[in-house]
Design a protein around this nucleic acid. Structure first.
Lengths: 134, 134
DNA sequence: CTACAACTTAAAGTCGACTTTAGGTCAAGA
DNA sequence: TCTTGACCTAAAGTCGACTTTAAGTTGTAG
């Protein structure tokens, strides 16, 4: 596969693939002239990278978990991530509830509403937001 | 309250408060010489801003929901956010399960494990990650 | 009254993850 | 053989949310 095919198959831009290569996250199977070509396993690897990104790992973190061939998953790190996700999910659920309430609460002033008050306190804990660009 | 007190009470740095003011998110109650002073309602406002940040709104988005005094919550936007959170929570739960499994899965090669395979597919959907800096 | 810690400003810097640009190479179809 | 579109590189730019810096001002404790 050439870089455009990998891009299509993975949903990443060619520039991103080159960038990942530069960071040591992936490598091409070789070159045809200047042009990179890849074998299919790179798609698996990219899926894995996506997964890591999704759970909030940085590219650097991820590179520490990937071996040239395949993966080296640090189980302790995984358990830690699992716990973090648990907390985060719980907070998000609480916030979801609060928003849901706010969306339907007839009180003219949300600030006065006790449910909203609780919500504010939760957010006050400053478990930091994560940026979504979708 | 002076800026340092607000900073202490809100957990934000003075520089952040000035930045928020510059963006029109908050304003001081006045000046004492050059120095800003605030009344307590700014803390409520900051809590609200925190909340918005937490659910993934940008500062610009947030500024559109805040009036000089108090809040102008767009209920449709809230409902939309609620729905988004639902999706996100569901995905995170699935990933949490996957990670939990991976952390305990005895298979030497995660890539071979069907649970992990499902996980990869999920992440493959590229519901984008959110950056955590904690 | 003086020192100085804490405030002020505007502007530049930072961070991660990319994207864009400028300038060049080259495989393959007409 | 020529053209051209897709590829290449290195370097600079972008984005959001701040933080840092440099240079200046001032309320207040001693």
């Amino acid at each position: 596969m050439d870089i455009a095919e990998v891009a299509r198959a993975s949903g990443l831009k060619p520039s991103t693939l080159r960038y990942y290569e530069q960071k040591g996250l992936i490598c091409s199977a070789g070159r045809h002239g200047l042009r990179r070509y890849y074998d299919a396993t790179v798609l698996e690897r990219l899926a894995l990278i996506n997964l890591g990104r999704y759970v909030g790992l940085s590219l650097d973190d991820i590179s520490h978990m990937l071996l040239p061939n395949g993966v080296n998953v640090d189980r302790a790190l995984l358990r830690q991530k699992t716990a973090e996700l648990d907390k985060q999910i719980a907070t998000m659920q609480a916030i979801r509830e609060g928003l849901h309430h706010a969306a339907n609460c007839p009180a003219p002033n949300h600030l006065a509403c006790p449910t909203f008050q609780r919500l504010l306190k939760l957010a006050g804990k400053r478990l930091k937001p994560r940026q979504s660009k979708l």
